[in-house]
Amino acid sequence: MDSPHGAAVTAEDFGLKGPRGWAFRGVRLDASPGALIAIEGPSGSGRTCLLLALTGRMRPSEGRAEVGGLRLPRQMAALRRISALGPVPGVSELDPAFTVAEHLRERALLQRRYDGSLRALLRPRAERTAAARNRIETALDAAGLDPARLPKAERTSVRDLERLEALRLSVALALIGRPRLLAVDDTDLKLSDAERAEAWELLRSVADSGTTVLAACSQAPVGAIIVRTATTATSGTSGTSGTSGTAEADASDASAPAEAPEATTEKTTAEKTTDEGTADAFAETGRA
């Protein structure tokens, strides 16, 4: 099987509105295949809605976006087939009662059932089992998770995993389907500085392997393409919706390197959003 080829992601004046306000608005983005894209903003700023909209799980209200050559919102169903969700609270969460082995086995079975070709389904059982095991091992290796090192190996329950271990498991489950776009929410939530660095190293390695990564976070890492879902009007530093600039020109970005690589200088901002707008967007749009 060929290695996954990442999906290019572009957006122009992209927005999603609920009855009481905008979840996000004015988003502009231009990212190449295999990019690491960080959606930066505080909780309630619309970052999860933007992540779900760019993976075909929520319907946008205005503007345009294209992911892997698929236009939104017209080709949302097709986009869902080439994208995969890592951990997204309330949408794709791990079952705390399941063991690591049960999660992996379930995902492999679902992958074979819904995404496998007819020829693959007709292969001998032993061959199908070996193929599934190989896919699981490849995904675990890419996620940097070695079940043998867990307290009870593959029989370890999700509730007994550390936060970073759970993140790695969620990423592995998503990668079993060999997606072109991987989306991860709350990337840096409840992580120490050292663990946060490990999490971004993981996602950067996934991107380097060819899969485009879209990660929502409170603080973006150095070198990522940054999309900001809120500005801070109360602090006197408000941004203009849809404005972009280089890392060198954006003096307000404390995380930007002095000399950013050419592929990581694109930055975007969006209008300030409200908790009500984000909540309504979830309620009105629904999730897939």
Results as ranks from 00 to 15, higher is better:
S238M: 03
A215S: 02
T232G: 06
V213I: 02
E198Y: 09
L191N: 15
V184A: 06
P221D: 13
L191F: 13
V222G: 10
R228Y: 03
L191Y: 13
E198Q: 15
V222D: 14
S238Q: 04
S205D: 11
R228T: 02
A183L: 13
R204T: 13
G223V: 08
L202G: 05
L214E: 06
T211Y: 05
V227L: 09
V206D: 09
D208T: 10
D208G: 07
T187L: 12
S218Q: 08
A199I: 09
W200K: 11
I226T: 04
L182C: 11
K190L: 15
V206G: 08
I226A: 03
A183I: 11
R204M: 14
S218I: 03
D186R: 13
A230F: 00
T229V: 00
A183S: 11
A183G: 11
S235Q: 06
L203A: 02
R228L: 00
T231R: 05
V222L: 13
A216E: 10
L202Y: 04
P221V: 08
S209M: 07
P221N: 11
I225M: 01
A220N: 04
P221W: 07
D188E: 12
D208A: 14
E201H: 06
E201K: 12
D185P: 09
D193T: 15
D193C: 13
V206I: 12
L202K: 07
P221A: 11
T231K: 01
G210H: 05
S235H: 04
A215D: 04
G210K: 09
T237P: 00
A233R: 02
I225D: 02
W200M: 14
T211F: 05
I226H: 01
S235C: 03
T231Y: 02
A194P: 07
G210Y: 08
Q219M: 12
C217K: 07
T229I: 00
C217N: 06
L181E: 10
T232M: 11
V213T: 04
D208M: 09
T237S: 07
D208L: 10
V222C: 11
T231D: 06
E195K: 09
T211D: 08
T231C: 00
D193F: 14
Q219S: 14
V227D: 02
D185C: 12
A194I: 12
R196I: 12
A197E: 15
T212C: 15
V213S: 03
